[in-house]
Nucleic acid binder design. Structure first.
Length: 1023
RNA sequence: GGGCGAUUAGCUCAGUUGGUUAGAGCGUCUGGUUUACACCCAGAAGGCCGCAGGUUCGAAUCCUACAUCGCCCACCA
């Protein structure tokens, strides 16, 4: 066997993604193509990965995110940029700690308090190590071209240093403060969570009416004030009852508003609004006098008695109490309700905190101390009822706040909290987008970004967790003089007064302070850690070495583009922009590209809590990484989310097992067909893991896998036929129509792909490549080339063009499908190391091959139009054959009546009609006489007659003609109407001209068909 | 309640600044062992472009209202 034969023998008929991925991954790693270093001769192109949370494994959303980044980075690398993609993972404070704690409790029945800080943190590190490994493995399996030498973790030393410097800088500029704030308290995790981590659920609840006795009621005054509440237990912390200061005016205002609404609301809502209005008017009659009285009493400083606590609390006049709601009076519990907290501040009321960190009630709850919320509520209600204070209970739908992390109820809780002042920082981030320095694509996402920032709400940065960057603050009761003495000459330690204790807050920029750093005084470190986003906000510059003035920071920063998903625009993107400017004086990135979300078959977003996240590995195993990538890129448009309908495939019998909401979270599934069990991505026990994994299948992946295979086989065809090829420059004068056509198409596609990828139009790029490779290169050029390859005189040029096109196609496709293109590229080098229209040595890897330059001169619309005519003629012949059921091996004769130009084009294609349609041409030109009996078709500029002689089924032909004529008549009619109307006068001349020409063409076609029909009818009649 | 997006063939989606007869893949149907590929080839059927108005010579495309679905933000003692 010759070397050549051996190479051909080594080409399997199906693309083997497993082998290719293993081989190319190892090759890339060994060669270090994706390692990037400062190189002043090149322009940098930098991307930092949105670091995935180490909470769990990656799902399809990450696969999409990574694919889009890699496609861009690979193209830029090929375009000659010094391309750097920095990988890494995020410690994801709350989420990760929650997951580890939940597991700890499920498996061992222990809480974090049983373990203690150090042991728990150690457990989380173990978890992190495990998932970081898995995540990195997933990213590598996807083929991502990251520089792994530069991998970062938001909790590693480099990032920690950046965090400390950022905090210190904020502290130094007076932007960090500590205050009492009502926070969202997660009683399970025992930490405050941000508003963004809370979701609201609607549940059935109750509305309890309570009577608080008025102290010393006067003549004509009510003896009770009735308040309504959905949370009766909080009454223990009431400090006032509020009533609107001017209920009559408020009623008027609301009434006016409702009437206005009634006037212009849609018909079907009128009843509802009317009912609301009626209710309001009735309420006014019923309660206004009483509310006015109460407002007066409030202004007079009168009090009521808080039952159970037997505390006198004031009636206050405050606009928060809406006369149209509830009883018109509202109890005020500043420590446990955000709105009441505001009222408390306005009215100068104390805040009585009832809650312990673990969700039980504290000493302020009196005899209810130590009980949890549920029990307090029961007890309070029972006692109130006994006292006769509880006067009414209604059913009511209420909304409760739930923690996104622990899925348990959120309690508003008064707590010390660290904040960053946002006023100026937010402004810089708004300016950057408003003046175009940072671009957001698609542009519509800029609005949400700006709206969120414009609220300039201070950023709560403390988390009552153990997993994270510990806040670098120490409390001390030392005097300022003592601090000055202890830290004399230290530029890295600062302090400011601690308003809540009268002592000092000490902040250290780099190292932790010892307990005895101030002689004779004790330094106590803040327990809290920083919000995860505090460290990820620094990601673009911290990963490049900030605060050190590294060469990397100087060269690679600002980064080029940030590719992420829309749900973290405010949480993450906005904070990166403000932190970037604050720390480095520069924006963190030129552009933010927001990609679609991955939805499941029900149209719901994928999330861990729903369990509908799919491990990309389960898809890649079956279809290959390229198929996954190509499918995702193909689906990435700028307006539509990516809907993926996925199912399981039974590994035993191959049956498709529908993925349902029920079975998609199971670790093992029994195949309904063969009854055998298989495992899923959720398998954890040894027993489940021992079962074969059921791959996840979906139509989109199948299509993409087929495409990869098509490319493989087209490449295989080219390689098999390369024997004897002698590379030499292509002489344009020797090119045939089909050569010029495919080279023109290639140039157009190169242009389109480049532009599309540069504008993040991934779907466009993928589509262009798919159509070109399949419908043009494979279905036409490769087919046409077959007869040329048999002819020694014409062989070399065909080989050269095939090679040229394949070479460029591989390069264009490489960013989206890196493995198959690399596999082919390297094998191709064995067959033809020198190639291309201008012969050059192939690079050792397509990943570092130059990106195809767009050869504008090759783009030839004239030749494309002419070739289209050939394609149309071929299609007509094929259709005629199919319609008449001509056996595949039977050759038919055909002729085309057309003008000399078209004939000149078709004549050299004679061979191809034979090889591609089994048709022998008997003549092209204006003088062709229509045969009496034939299957014919009329296409623009051509009448095509396929002589099927004895085979013809006249009835079928007649039916076909009748249908066609009817259709043509319809078009002609509508066009004539159009041209006789205002169209001819008002539309631009070239459009009218086009329309006239098209009308003429249609008429010709109709006439041809009518003539044929008459002939056919005559034949039918004579039989 | 505020904002954003979607609605096109049985299904999943394209459709560039308004301009010939609205496209693709899957599925369906017909026919195929052509020396790259059955993960393939050739062909066919299938659409009142969500509904109603408007602008225009001309609307899937622009405007208004409505309907349905999804996402984000805010809020309801």
């Amino acid at each position: 066997m010759t070397n050549q034969e051996q190479l051909i023998n080594d080409l399997p008929k199906q693309y083997d993604h497993q082998a290719a991925q293993a081989r190319q991954t190892a090759f890339w790693e060994e060669k270090g193509f994706f390692n990037s270093d400062v190189n002043k001769d090149k322009k940098p192109f930098t991307v930092v990965i949105p670091p995935p949370n180490v909470t769990g494994a990656l799902h399809m959303g990450h696969a999409l995110n990574d694919t889009l980044q890699d496609a861009l980075v690979r193209m830029k690398r090929m375009q000659g940029y010094e391309a750097l993609w920095v990988p890494g993972v995020d410690h994801a404070g709350i989420a990760t700690q929650a997951v580890v704690e939940r597991r700890l409790f499920e498996l061992e029945g222990k809480t974090r308090w049983d373990l203690g800080r150090e042991a728990l943190v150690q457990r989380i590190w173990d978890w992190k190590d495990q998932y970081q490994r898995r995540i990195v493995g997933q990213i590598k399996a996807l083929g991502c071209s990251c520089d792994w030498r530069r991998e970062r973790f938001t909790l590693d030393d480099v990032c920690a240093k950046a965090v400390r410097h950022f905090f210190y800088k904020l502290f130094a500029e007076g932007l960090i403060y500590r205050g009492k704030r009502l926070v969202n308290w997660d009683v399970t995790l025992q930490t405050a969570v941000s508003d963004d981590e809370v979701f609201h659920e609607t549940v059935a609840g109750n509305f309890w009416y309570l009577n608080y006795p008025v102290v010393d009621p006067q003549e004509g005054e009510p003896e009770f004030v009735t308040v309504a509440t959905t949370r009766p237990e909080t009454m223990l912390g009431d400090v006032a009852v509020a009533v609107h200061p001017d209920p009559a005016a408020e009623f008027d205002r609301v009434e006016k508003e409702l009437r206005a609404k009634l006037a212009d609301c849609p018909e079907r809502e009128k009843d509802e609004v009317q009912a609301e209005l009626d209710d309001l008017l009735q309420r006014r009659v019923d309660s206004l006098p009483r509310l006015i009285k109460l407002a007066e009493m409030a202004k007079a400083g009168r009090k009521v008695v808080l039952p159970l606590q037997n505390r006198e609390i004031p009636l206050v006049a405050d606009v928060w109490a809406k006369p149209e709601k509830g009883t018109g009076c509202v109890k005020i519990t500043p420590a446990h309700d955000p709105n009441d907290y505001e009222v408390g501040k306005r009215q100068d009321l104390p805040a009585i905190n009832l809650l312990n960190r673990d969700g039980t009630y504290n000493e302020n709850a009196g005899k209810y101390q130590g009980l949890n919320l549920k029990k307090v509520r029961q007890a309070v209600l029972a006692d109130l009822e006994e006292l006769g204070v509880l006067v009414k209970v209604e059913d009511r739908v209420i909304e409760i706040a739930t923690s996104d992390r622990s899925k348990t109820a959120i309690e508003p809780y008064l707590n010390d909290q660290w904040f960053v002042k946002m006023a100026d920082l937010a402004q810089t981030a708004m300016d950057a987008v408003e003046n175009g320095e940072v671009k957001i694509e698609p542009k519509r996402y800029a609005k949400g970004y700006l709206d969120w920032l414009s609220e300039k709400r201070d950023w709560p940065i403390g988390r009552q967790l153990w997993w994270g960057h510990r806040i670098p603050i120490w409390y001390t009761d030392a005097t300022e003089a003592e601090l000055e003495a202890a830290f004399a000459g230290r530029a890295d330690v600062m302090w400011s007064p601690d308003e809540s204790t009268g002592g000092w807050l000490v902040c250290s920029q780099t190292e932790d302070l010892a307990e005895d750093a101030v002689p004779g005084r004790k330094l106590i470190r803040e327990e809290d850690v920083l919000d995860t986003w505090f460290s990820s906000a620094l990601w673009p510059h911290s990963t490049l070495g900030w605060p050190e003035k590294t060469a990397e920071l100087d060269y690679y920063y600002p980064t080029s583009v940030l590719i992420t998903s829309r749900d973290i625009i405010s949480l993450w993107v906005a904070r990166m922009v403000l932190a970037g400017y604050f720390n480095t004086g520069k924006k963190p990135f030129e552009t933010v590209f927001i990609h679609p979300k991955i939805l499941d078959k029900y149209g719901e977003g994928m999330s861990k809590s729903k369990g509908n996240g799919v491990d990309p590995i389960a898809v890649m195993e079956k279809f290959g990484a390229d198929a996954l990538r190509f499918a995702l890129a193909f689906l990435t448009t700028d307006s539509q989310d990516v809907r993926l309908s996925l199912d399981f495939e039974c590994p035993h019998c191959g049956a498709t097992v529908e993925q349902t909401k029920k079975n998609r979270t199971l670790p093992r599934i029994d195949c309904p067909k063969c009854k055998k069990a298989f495992s899923t991505q959720w398998a954890e026990t040894e027993e489940d893991k021992a079962l074969p994994l059921g791959p996840v299948v979906g139509e989109r992946f199948e299509v993409a896998r087929n495409f990869c295979n098509k490319l493989w086989n087209a490449s295989r065809f080219v390689m098999i036929n390369l024997e004897g090829f002698e590379p030499k420059a292509i002489d344009p004068s020797e090119l045939l129509v089909e050569d010029r056509w495919i080279l023109s198409r290639l140039a157009s596609v190169a242009k389109r792909v480049t532009e599309s990828l540069e504008r993040y139009k991934y779907s466009d790029a993928a589509r262009a490549l798919y159509d070109f490779a399949w419908d043009e290169f494979c279905s036409f050029y490769v087919e046409i080339s077959k007869s040329r390859l048999f002819d020694p005189a014409r062989r070399n040029l065909a080989q050269n063009v095939l090679l040229t096109v394949l070479d460029s196609l591989l390069r264009l496709l490489h960013p989206i499908a890196p493995f198959v293109t690399e596999e082919v590229w390297r094998r191709l080098a064995d067959f033809a190391p020198v190639r291309g229209a201008v012969p050059t040595q192939a690079t050792e890897s397509v990943s570092i091959a130059p990106w195809p330059t767009v050869d504008e001169a090759a783009i030839d619309p004239e030749i494309e139009a002419r070739f289209a005519q050939f394609q149309e003629a071929l299609r007509c012949v094929r259709e005629a054959r199919a319609r008449q059921n001509v056996p595949p091996k039977t050759e038919v004769k055909f002729a085309v009546k057309c003008d000399a130009d078209v004939a000149a084009l078709l004549d050299p294609m004679k061979d191809y009609f034979r090889s591609m349609a089994g048709a022998v041409a008997t003549g092209f030109g204006p003088d062709v006489e229509p045969p009496v009996l034939s299957s014919n078709a009329a296409a623009p500029g051509m009448e095509i007659y396929v002589d099927v002689a004895e085979l013809i089924d006249v009835a079928t032909e007649i039916a076909k003609k009748e249908k066609e004529i009817e259709k043509l008549e319809g078009f002609i009619k509508s066009k004539e109407a159009k041209l006789s109307g205002g169209f001819a006068e008002k539309a631009p001349a070239h459009v009218v001209e086009k329309e006239r020409a098209s009308l003429e063409e249609l008429k010709t076609q109709r006439d041809v068909n009518v003539a044929t029909l008459e002939r056919l009818r005559a034949v039918a009649a004579s039989k």
